[in-house]
Design a protein around this nucleic acid. Sequence first.
DNA 1: TATTGTTATACTCTATAACTATA
DNA 2: TATAGTTATAGAGTATAACAATA
Lengths: 146, 146
Amino acid sequence: MANNSNIEMCARMILDTVPEAMQRVRSEMRANRAEYLSVPQFRAMLFLGKNAGASQSTVADFLGLSPAGTSAVIEGLVGHGLVVRSEVPGDRRKVALALTAKGRKDLERTRAAALEGICALIAGLGPEQRRTVAEALELLHGALSR
Amino acid sequence: MANNSNIEMCARMILDTVPEAMQRVRSEMRANRAEYLSVPQFRAMLFLGKNAGASQSTVADFLGLSPAGTSAVIEGLVGHGLVVRSEVPGDRRKVALALTAKGRKDLERTRAAALEGICALIAGLGPEQRRTVAEALELLHGALSR
DNA sequence: TATTGTTATACTCTATAACTATA
DNA sequence: TATAGTTATAGAGTATAACAATA
């Protein structure tokens, strides 16, 4: 019962705070020179920055989107010249995705701007409070990844 | 410099984890009988459940949306018969919003289902880990609300 | 048959701009 | 002039379903 209230309070905080934080992250991204990159597009680029040559279904898994949705997100990035699709020798169904030179440059800039904006949002927290937040988000990330 | 790395790591965790958590919250809501309520619509209803008679601009502040966007969200709720608009005596520009009886009933059901879904997501965490997460989200909520 | 990806469709989100009505 | 809200418009996000190509 104490256990029950514990887990429910945690769930309530997630329901209250995650959408709020998401709104702010999105606003920060738009405000800080990332006008033409949506959050899913940005996340796809972050993933491709670390996983060059990934297939579209791999990206879909990472983004948590349907194949159709992922296709649309990637299509936008290709349209902006940030990502290229190429064939995978050996399995002609698959598409290998990678950042272009422009994509890598823009990712770097956007990433720095987004981080700066988020730093501004949490500037009011003290060092150990930030440590608590970082630790908790790591826990949450682990729980959601399973 | 240690300070700098601390704040930047926290920002990086936010950028990594908040969108991921948002995806899962949305999926849970859709899966658990809340098919016809989007996250912003649900949040608006939660707010109106505690702030009956609120004006649309008050809801806009809470949601972090523009007046136009808020108008659209509310329009959807009115269309589903979950919210009613009424006049404010004394200032005929304003609109007072409130849940209908159906709205209150659906909110209760949706809220329970959403919490249950989120509880399932974090079931893998231990009690003190959940306490850390809840505490951190409270800190984050406080930081974002300023 | 199962997998990878696309196209079609539909509804919602989100923003900006222009507008009406009221204060 | 300033505020509350709506309408118009546009580009993304997100889902499902139907499809083509490949394995």
